[in-house]
Amino acid sequence: MAGKTARFLLGKLLRMLSLLLAACLLSFFLLSLSPIDPVEAYVGASVTVSEQQREEIAAHWGLDQPPAERFGLWLSSIAKGDLGTSLLYRRPVLDVIGERFLASLWLMGIAWIFSGLIGLGLGILAGRREGSLWDKGIRGFCLLLSSTPTFWVGMVLLLIFAVWLGWFPVGLSVPIGVLEQDVTLFDRLSHVILPALTLSLAGMAPIALHTREKLIAINRSDYMLYARARGEGEWTALRRHGLRNLALPAVTLQFASFAELFGGSVLAEQVFSYPGLGRAATEAGLNGDLPLLLGIVLFSTLFVFIGNSIADLLTFFIDPRIRRAKRGGI
């Protein structure tokens, strides 16, 4: 067991390193094709910067070197933990990412928990009685949700709850003109609720539909029949055998959804001008802030990878069929 676990973890680590390297290569290649000139983006419209100074800046960033060497340079500084300085914020990329990610973490965390719990709940409600009114209603709702773009959902929520009803602020993550230390938890929550709701609505449908399918399959399964034959009531059987068999794929799916979560947060943050990592990505892209953009690409790759790894790990440790399968000897 210990040997197998170690091998599993080592394999994960190697895969992570190679994935990050590939992500570096690909994003560097893509950005080198980008029409945005980083020096131009950096100095902006300022006329006081002479041609001479521009070349110096370019040389300072190593832009006068051939691409392969630039890549090597960039890679070696990343390896040392230096992601460079954001052109837009004039601060180290890591600091910007750290700060923005914290804001996004609130948003994504709340959305993630909501979508997981509500999705699971709706899925159970729908799957318990296949073909019932509940089932039809919930399935319709989920199909509608998954065919609606996130930013559109965001705008509708914004319109209804912030503009018409005025229950929530229209944007940002904290009230304007309030000092950092005076921002209350309530302020933060009221700012995060709408974007989080938008994001969780997007993530809920797959979980609910998946849970529904799974529950229907479980209810038809031989082991549920046997549990009932042994005198278990419907709920006891569901709790004792259903939930475990239901939760495993649901939890796995939920952790594997980090990519969708991050992708959705880019859109949701844009709609609500919520200053998180997603919005930073948009800004960096639009303003040619290459170091920041590359940093975010790497960071989000890592983020998604961690989610997927947790999903694998959970399956590995919870599901005995996988944990023990390769050990041989039945």
Binding site: Y226, R230, G231
Partner: peptide, 18 residues
């Protein structure tokens, strides 16, 4: 069920896999 009358099912699929 399960107290006076019980089933002896036909295959391993009747056991909870987890």
């Amino acid at each position: 069920r399960g107290k006076e009358i019980t089933l002896i099912p036909q295959s391993v699929t009747y056991l909870d896999p987890l």
